[in-house]
Design a protein around this nucleic acid. Sequence first.
DNA 1: TGCATAGTTCGATGCTAATCGAAACGTACA
DNA 2: TGTACGTTTCGATTAGCATCGAACTATGCA
Lengths: 226, 226
Amino acid sequence: MQSSPNLARIGALLGDNTRAQMLSTLMHGQALTASELARDAGVTAQTATSHLAKLLDGGLLTVHKQGRHKYFALAGEEVASLLESLMGFSAASDSKRVFTGPRDKAMRKARVCYNHLAGDMGIRLYDSLMHQELLLLRDGTPALSQKGEKFVTEFGIDLPALRAGKSPLCRSCLDWSERRTHLAGSLGRALYTCMEERRWVKRGDGRTVIFTARGEREFNAAFPVS
Amino acid sequence: MQSSPNLARIGALLGDNTRAQMLSTLMHGQALTASELARDAGVTAQTATSHLAKLLDGGLLTVHKQGRHKYFALAGEEVASLLESLMGFSAASDSKRVFTGPRDKAMRKARVCYNHLAGDMGIRLYDSLMHQELLLLRDGTPALSQKGEKFVTEFGIDLPALRAGKSPLCRSCLDWSERRTHLAGSLGRALYTCMEERRWVKRGDGRTVIFTARGEREFNAAFPVS
DNA sequence: TGCATAGTTCGATGCTAATCGAAACGTACA
DNA sequence: TGTACGTTTCGATTAGCATCGAACTATGCA
């Protein structure tokens, strides 16, 4: 009768502070070991184990064993995207809490979301790609135009390698601070990686991304908006 | 440091069976009284009161008092859309549960999602509007073309009245069964209402929507796909 | 004015789940 | 082979919260 067990199940999974903290941390995009996650969340290893087992069972995480370590990561873009919208909703409805610290300002400008660029700069990237018609919407999902394929290849991206991967090339992801959509997918991640390699950006505290002065200049030149 | 309290807060709200059931029920789109929701969820009125207070406080519901009754409804499209994606995720990851009953089949074909049409038929509607260029994408969100304005007016929709309302005319909503986007917003709701008035559809169990034979024929004629 | 019904508040109860200490298991490395 | 470290299992404790009975307030109707 009720499809609610579904909802309650996933809700309960997200509803615990420790697990929420772990998921938040994993939104950075890196895979982390059980003990790193435990330390970060401020619980003992035993407790972390039980939480991670639940998150795995719920399909939110994947694990990959390496020697005596276990690396945990978000199960995929979909999970990241889901979390991003939840956090967005939460931030919006949570008007009591004032989000005006410098840290928050940096988060709004640029942050990483499962290894792709989000925040104001993420949206500028998306808008620019759209505006230059490097990216087109096909059935509601973004796709590279021929011009776009040429562009990203020249930018330094190995397109065939990305296509060979199992995750989709382009996905859109809803930005919580701007309520606008930006580019995710393996292409989104590759673009961000290129920016790191070019030293346009470096990671700040938490999920924040900091543009160097030169980085921002070159970003604006490469991705102009109207 | 952690933006997790946000996540945990909303998660905890959704993580209770009774509250999840209430939200599920409210996804039908109708506003219901506290006692109706209590009965539907199988709890006493006191319990329902406490849950509804929490959901209100969390920004998921709105209330509107009428005499000695209190009508509760989802706080808006965004909430509905959020719940829809959560349920979708849940259904996808929940591969143990087999979703093959006749009821589920009906749900996949057509259901109501906060008073607009979802499921297979919802997507056909969206695709048809796009294909006929009645609907265009502007900055990623759908918008009516001039041709589209004419079309929906002739279909029997009072466009100026919708525009006067506070909720946006067009929104896209992600369909959990099809993983595709369909039309929400006040226009989406108005189109569904028109279909009910024309007796193309009637409500079935839960959120299911049943097309009459004539209804489906006329729907297909009005909204052809490629 | 009085009665019925909708909704709320309070307090007590019971269940679920998070937490950690202790101890085990498994892998790496010397 | 032994030691160190990452991870897991088990059991006991505890805290939070959903639930309901009982009593209260508020609204509508006769």
